[in-house]
Every structure is written in C-alpha cells, then in structure tokens.
Design a protein around this nucleic acid. Structure first.
Length: 590
RNA sequence: GCGCGCGUAGCUCAAUUGGAUAGAGCGUCGGUCUCCGAAGCCGAAGGUUGUGGGUUCAACUCCCGCCGCGCGCACCA
C-alpha cells in the first residue's frame, strides 16, 4: 500500500474514534507545497464546519489519536486546521525500492472495483470521421485505459450511428446515382456525395423527399433489397472505422449501433405510456415534466414571456418514427440489464448536455430501482477551434477529415524529426514521426480541461518546449539514452539497486513518482484525463531538473550512480505507463 | 426571450471534496554546451482571476446582480 493511503487510513481511524458517526470518505490527503510537508489534509476543517466545532481543537483532538509512526514524522497542525505530514525517508526509500523490484508502479489496484460502461466515439455510417471525433474518441479511450489499469471492469461501447432518417436519402441516392468505380476508389466519399446531392434535391423538391421517405419506410419494413444495401453501406463504413481506430490504437469491447436497439423502441414507448411517464401530444408521444423540480431547474419546462410551458422529450414522432431519446432509453435499459454497471459514462459533446439531462431524469422515473444503483454521467467536452477562434475547418471551409489530420500530423512530425536527426535511416524517422505526430494530436486534445474549448495549433502541439507529448517523449528518450550508454539494462540495474537520495532534485523527483497512483485515481474519479497530463509534465520537468543537476553515469560513487540509474528507470516506467493510458506511445530514440 | 456553459499574465492554457504565496508554455529581457541528448536547463519582468455585491477562518472555485462571448431551445442525431 502506498504511503498516502496508509496515512489516510490512520487518519480516518482517528476521526472515527473521535466522531463515531462521521462520514470519513472525504477524509483524504493530497500532495502539498514541500515547505509544509509531503501531504496535507484540509478535511478536518470541513468536518469541523459541518459539526460546528472549533477546527483547531478538532485537529488537535484527532492528532492526539493519530498514530503515524513508521510512516511520517510527528504530524503538525497549521493555519486554520491543516494537518501536515512529512514522510520518513526510510519509507520513501522502501517504496521506491519495491517499485524498482517490480512490486508496484506507484499505484494500487482499486479496493472495490466497479463496472463502468463507457460510450464514446460514435461515428456515423456513410460519413467520414472528422476532427470532431477526436475528442470523444481520445478522452473515452484514455478513460477506459485508466480504469482498466486500476483494476475496474470496463465495457467500452461504440454506439455507431447506423440507423435513422438519413438512410432514406442514402438509399435513394444509391439506387439512382451510384458511381460504382468511385465507390470502389473511396466508398465514404461516394456515399457522402450521394447524400449531399439527394439532400439538396429534397430541400428543393418535396417529391424527392417523399421518395426518400418511401425508401426509409421500405428499409424499416425489412425490404430485402434495401436491407442489403444498408448492410453494404455499414460494411464499407466499418472498414473506414477500423482503419482509423487501428491507427489510433483504439478498441471497443462492443459496438452496438443504433440499429441494434431498433426492435426495442416500440416496447420502450409502450412501457413509458403504460406507466404514465409519457403521453400523446399533437400526434407525437413525449415525456413531460412531472413537477418534481422547481421550474427553473426542470428541463421539461421552458419559459416564454414569463410563462412556463412544456418542453417535452419526444420519444415518438407523429409519423410513428422514433427519436434518438427513444434509442438512448433502450440502450440504457440494455446496459442496465446486461452489465449492472456502477456508472454509465457518455463521452459526448457538451452541446448535448440538455439532452442528457432529460434522458437521465427519464431513466430515474422509468427504472427507479436500477437507477439507484447506477450513476449516469455525461462527460462533456468543448469544441476545437481554429486560430481565428471559430470552429476548426480547412482553408476552404470544409470539416477536417480525421484521416487527413493524422496524415498531416505524421508529415509535420517527419519534417521535424528529419531536421533534428538527419543521420537516421528514413524508415526509423518515419516510425518516430508516426509516434510523435499521433501522440502530439492526442495529447493536445487531452491536456485542456475537457469542458473548455481549445484552439488547435500544430506548432504548439508539436513543440518540444512546454506541455506537449513530444516533450514527454523526449524525456523518455533521454533516459533510454542513458541506459544505452551504461553497461546495464534498466531492469538489471533497478532490480539490484538500493536508493540513496541526497540532492533536493532527487527527493523532489522521488516524491513525485509516489503521486502517480493518486493522480490516476483522480482521473478515474472525475473522468478528467488532463490531471494525468499535468502530472506527467511535472514529472518530466522534475526529471530534467534532476538530470541537469545530478550526473548519473558520472556520479561520484557507484552507489550514487546505481541509485540515480534506478530513479531514471522508475521515471521512464511511469512516463511510459502514463502515456500508454493516454493512448500515446514512446520511442527509444527521437 | 428562456436555459446551459464560459470569461484567469500581451497570446495559448492549468489550478484535484472551497485551502496555505493563482501556476506553465509562447513572446520579451538575461544567463547556461571542452561535461550522461542544448529538441534542454536556470533566472527576471508580466495578475484587483470580466465587473459589483454576498457567504466563509479561507473564494478562480459557492450564491445574487450586471457586462461580454459561445451553445441549445419539441417531431435531425
């Protein structure tokens, strides 16, 4: 068990002894400014406030019952009631040596693993994946990797858009305008062309729209020809998806698209009607406010001219068709029944927050028992903007295709790598450029607080200075360079090393290594990968400071050399593992 | 109009249950390679966290007003 966890357990025990009925789940420690110690807890101040106790007195009473011998120096109370903990050097050393022996990598597996369904990426059939899919795909993939590393059970699900009204137009286009050779050259481009042409025609001519609707009705009725074409469009799209996911290294446990739930939709609406959750209105069926929330907080109400009017979530259109709310409800139902998850996480654009707010409230009403055990979470994110502050587009104003974006990332990285390492064989430079280019794009997307928009900048994401993937990859490559120059491999060195920390830079690096697990838990708890980005950037910074000040191979004594080699190896392992759960690879040289 | 979100250094972004002196990078200025990768490192300058109130021992964080920007507002997803 890592030191910070030991402290937390002892602290919680002391609080429970003093206040037997207190909820100690929030009694935690966090890393703090070194001048105060290694960890601090401010939890007692909140506890004191809630119970109207004197915070300093509570802190003193807790500390009197707190036994952290063997873990920390005597605990000090500061300010309004902070507890400051300073690790004893022996425990720091032991923790690092155990890690060097491969017994852990500064994180503990979850004591209570949870089952989490993560819904992300969700591309549409017959459309190219574009820049808009990076965020959902990258954040979702990072989350599934972090949760798995911590020992949780994850079901990642790609909810592909393979059903809906757009197929009426696509079928009409396929039957009347399909250019077979073009389809074979670039299936997605041809499907996109068909859709655009028919869509424009439908806007102009009601008859065309009727024809498209007729094709849709046939498809929904199971017409053999239309179903066959629809299946072919899905297969062609899947090839595109597979190619992109292959490049990105992203995989899913299941990919249950919208069509999978099609047979359930009628039943969902019937059930909602039967339970009085939904009702008919103007020929459609919708879920209306149940009045349980104040109007201002009720998403099923909208204010017009000072009057609160219904703003229902429709589950069936007046023409009998279903809406995506209906599909989403069927999907929740399936997930609850199939996996009984603790969380269902939707990694979807923040612009859909209103939809999810309604969806989650409907689930609460529809399946109150299951909803009590499952938390539905909308992990939203902001937009990607161009340097003009408007949504990121190509020069000609089109959406940026994901494949093109990845190509450009690799091409730009190749130019840089070739410039810096001109003596390397081209094949090696290509491979390095692939890792750096893809890593740069992914990292730039994971770094900002996910709720905010960010401005896409090739120069910034590919720079070696600042908080970028190449900077982290460079730190890793430098460490590997040390091991190439040393006699021993990193695993051999570390396995037999004992740590002897002396310089402040060594302590700072060593202590930061200990916080890896804490950071992973924060990522998993709040669904925010950027915490890990910032941790890794700090780690690389602390490593380079150490590297500048503390000669490794030229250390004064063998003991110091071995100790520093061990620190290097541990740093490399954490960097590699940390980047790996962000979906980013490393290279030995760059 | 109503709702949701955002507003932090010149620029791009951080800031983990409200916590201790709001941090980075770019840009600017100044140091640093006969020494393990200088694609690096060290330092300086740069802030009334949009604005006005409130709650608190403590507010970028919570509450209210205002200003500015973005997004969403039944029968697309």
């Amino acid at each position: 068990m890592l030191p910070h966890k030991k402290i937390e357990l002892k602290l919680q025990a002391a609080v429970r002894e003093l206040l037997p009925d207190a909820d100690v789940s929030a009694v935690l420690v966090r890393p703090c400014d070194p001048k105060f110690g290694d960890y601090q807890s401010n939890a007692l101040m909140a506890l004191a406030k809630a119970r109207k106790l004197d915070p300093r007195q509570l802190a003193a009473d807790v500390v009197a019952r707190l036994d952290v011998s063997g873990v920390c120096d005597p605990v000090t109370i500061a300010g309004a009631g902070f507890l400051n903990f300073r690790l004893i050097p022996a425990l720091l050393r032991q923790t690092l040596e155990a890690a060097a022996r491969g017994e852990h990598l500064f994180f503990d597996l979850a004591a209570n693993p949870k089952t989490v369904v993560i819904d992300f990426s969700s591309p549409n059939v017959a459309k190219p994946m574009h820049v808009g899919h990076i965020r959902s795909t990258g954040i979702g993939d990072a989350l599934q990797r972090v949760l798995r590393l911590l020992g949780h059970r994850v079901i990642s699900d790609n909810h592909i858009g393979d059903w809906g009204t757009q197929f009426g137009k696509l079928l009409l286009g396929w039957k009347q305008l399909l250019d077979r050779p073009a389809l074979e050259r670039d299936a997605i481009a041809e499907l996109e062309r068909l859709y655009k042409v028919i869509n424009a025609e439908c806007d102009a001519h009601p008859a065309r729209l009727e024809a498209a609707k007729a094709e849709l009705v046939l498809l929904q009725a199971g017409d053999a020809d239309n179903v066959a074409i629809w299946r072919e469009m899905i297969a062609l799209s899947q090839k595109q998806f597979d190619a992109i996911y292959g490049r990105l290294g992203v995989s899913f446990d299941v990919a249950l698209g919208e069509s999978f739930y099609n047979p359930c939709l009628g039943g969902v609406v019937a059930d909602l009607l039967a339970r009085g959750i939904a009702r008919e209105s103007e020929g459609a069926v919708g879920v209306f406010s149940d009045g349980s929330l104040p109007p201002r907080e009720d998403p099923f109400l909208v204010n017009r001219d000072g009057e609160w009017l219904p703003d229902p979530a429709l589950v069936r259109k007046s023409d009998g068709g279903f809406k995506y709310t209906t599909t989403d409800l069927a999907t929740v139902d399936y997930r609850l029944k199939t996996w009984s998850p603790r969380d269902i996480v939707y990694v979807v654009d923040d612009r859909q927050s209103g939809h999810f707010k309604k969806l989650f409230l409907i689930v609460d009403r529809w399946q109150p028992a299951a909803a009590k055990n499952t938390r539905l979470v909308h992990v939203g994110f902001g937009k990607i903007l161009g340097d003009d502050g408007k949504p990121f587009k190509t020069r000609s104003g089109d959406t940026v295709k994901l494949g093109d974006l990845l190509d450009e990332a690799e091409a730009r990285a190749f130019v840089i790598v070739s410039e810096k390492s001109s003596d390397m064989p081209e094949a090696q430079r290509r491979e390095i450029a692939r890792v750096i280019g893809l890593g740069a794009v992914k990292y730039a997307d994971l770094l900002p607080n996910r709720q905010s928009d960010y401005i896409f900048s090739w120069d910034k994401m590919l720079a070696l200075q600042g908080n970028t993937a190449p900077y982290l990859q460079y730190a890793y490559a430098r460490i590997q360079s040390i091991f190439r120059k040393s006699e021993s491999s990193s695993s051999l060195v570390t396995r037999h090393s004992s740590l002897a920390l002396a310089a402040p830079e060594e302590f700072a690096l060593a202590k930061h290594l200990l916080n890896f697990g804490l950071t992973l838990e924060a990522v998993a708890g709040e669904y925010r990968p950027n915490f890990l980005c910032n941790y890794l950037y700090d780690l690389a910074g602390k490593f380079t400071s150490f590297y500048e000040c503390c000669p490794v191979l030229k250390a004064e004594t063998d003991a110091t050399r071995d100790s520093r080699l061990a620190l290097c190896a541990l740093t490399a392992r954490v960097l590699k593992q940390g980047l790996a759960v962000l979906g980013i690879e490393v290279v030995e040289q760059m």
